[in-house]
Amino acid sequence: MLAIAGLTQIPGSLYEAATLDGANGKEQFRFITLPLLRRTLLFSAVIAIINAVQVFEPVALITQGGPVGSTNVLTYHIRRVGIERAQGGLGSAMAVMLMLSLIVCVSALFSLVNRKDGE
């Protein structure tokens, strides 16, 4: 939905000018659509990463990580280690590593979006 909203904000005159200049569909997508959708796609990717990490409640309420750990997710595993197994230090370390890996992923996405085409 966000990509569609971003596409509606691109003026049609840009595509008309590109067509008059001889650009085909692939070139229009590469040089008009993608650069103008970068911020929208970044926002969508960050929200998707956050939502993927927040899949704790369905696992905790419905399956408790079973059968045989097939529905276990990292956030549920951190809770299980930290609280149920009473290994608070290990659970805290796992949570910190998860947070750091999320920061690295989001920073990499920001650097990809903010870089110039020539670089």
Rank of each mutant, 00 (worst) to 15 (best):
M97E: 03
S92D: 11
F29V: 10
L7G: 10
M97S: 11
A18V: 06
G82E: 05
V81F: 07
L100A: 07
G6V: 01
V55T: 11
Y76H: 03
F43Q: 12
G25A: 10
L42N: 04
S111A: 15
I78D: 00
M1L: 15
E16A: 07
I83P: 00
L61Y: 08
S101M: 12
A60G: 04
A95G: 05
T40V: 12
N72D: 15
T63M: 05
S107N: 10
G12I: 03
G66L: 06
L2Q: 13
G12W: 06
V104Y: 10
L20N: 12
A60C: 08
N51K: 15
P11W: 08
D21H: 05
T19M: 09
V96L: 11
S44I: 05
G89M: 08
G69F: 08
V59K: 03
I49Y: 04
E57P: 06
A86Y: 09
S13Q: 11
I83Y: 11
S111G: 02
V113H: 05
F56G: 01
Y15M: 06
F31V: 07
A86R: 10
A17L: 06
S13M: 13
A52V: 09
E57G: 13
E16S: 11
Q87C: 07
N114M: 11
L100G: 04
A108P: 04
R30T: 13
